[in-house]
């Protein structure tokens, strides 16, 4: 539980920080174009990449907080013991998906963009860095789901 709290904290501050940078970045874009008159060349791209980070890393954050939108029609009709079993099964499905698509698929995406030396048009940062958030988030979600199962925190 100690580790989980620590991860929660790091994840939370990272997200709040990225959000703040996003706001400042877009304000800077308006400022440079309208007040200074020489539009910034990188803000649009930076905003989009930060968006990817907030969305994908945020997915891990909400998994940790069990904040997902789900339709619970059938599970609620079952006995409590069966519901718990079903929840464990659902969590295992999510773990398998995250391992396959987000960790393996995501890492392959990072690898491809890394070895093929892809850089972003305006900022010239490696695309691998942008996509790196996908396997990271996948690993975090797997961690949260395993911890949920082990600690029987299923609802």
């Amino acid at each position: 539980m100690e580790i989980r709290k620590k991860i929660d904290k790091i994840l939370g501050s990272t997200l709040a920080f990225i959000m703040a940078v996003m706001v400042i970045n877009v304000l800077w874009q308006v400022f440079t174009r309208f007040i200074v008159g020489t539009p910034s060349s990188f803000t649009d791209e930076l905003a989009r990449y930060l968006m990817i980070w907030v969305g994908v890393l945020g997915a891990a954050y909400i998994s940790g907080k069990r904040m997902h939108v789900a339709i619970d029609l059938i599970p609620r009709k079952l006995s409590e013991a069966k519901q718990a079993k079903l929840k464990i099964f659902v969590n295992i499905l999510i773990i398998i998906f995250c391992l396959a698509a987000l960790v393996i698929g995501g890492f392959r995406l990072v690898y491809i963009t890394y070895v093929l030396e892809q850089y972003s048009p305006a900022l010239q940062i490696p695309l691998a860095l942008v996509y790196l958030v996908i396997p990271i988030s996948g690993l975090l979600i797997i961690f949260y789901k395993i911890s949920d199962i082990l600690n029987k925190q299923l609802f």
Binding site: G37, T38, E45, P121, A122
Partner: peptide
Amino acid sequence: MESITAMNMVNSLGGSPTPIS
């Protein structure tokens, strides 16, 4: 377009290059 070369060109011609999708 989101391209350094295109931005340099408009700059050299005296305009303000603005990347917009």
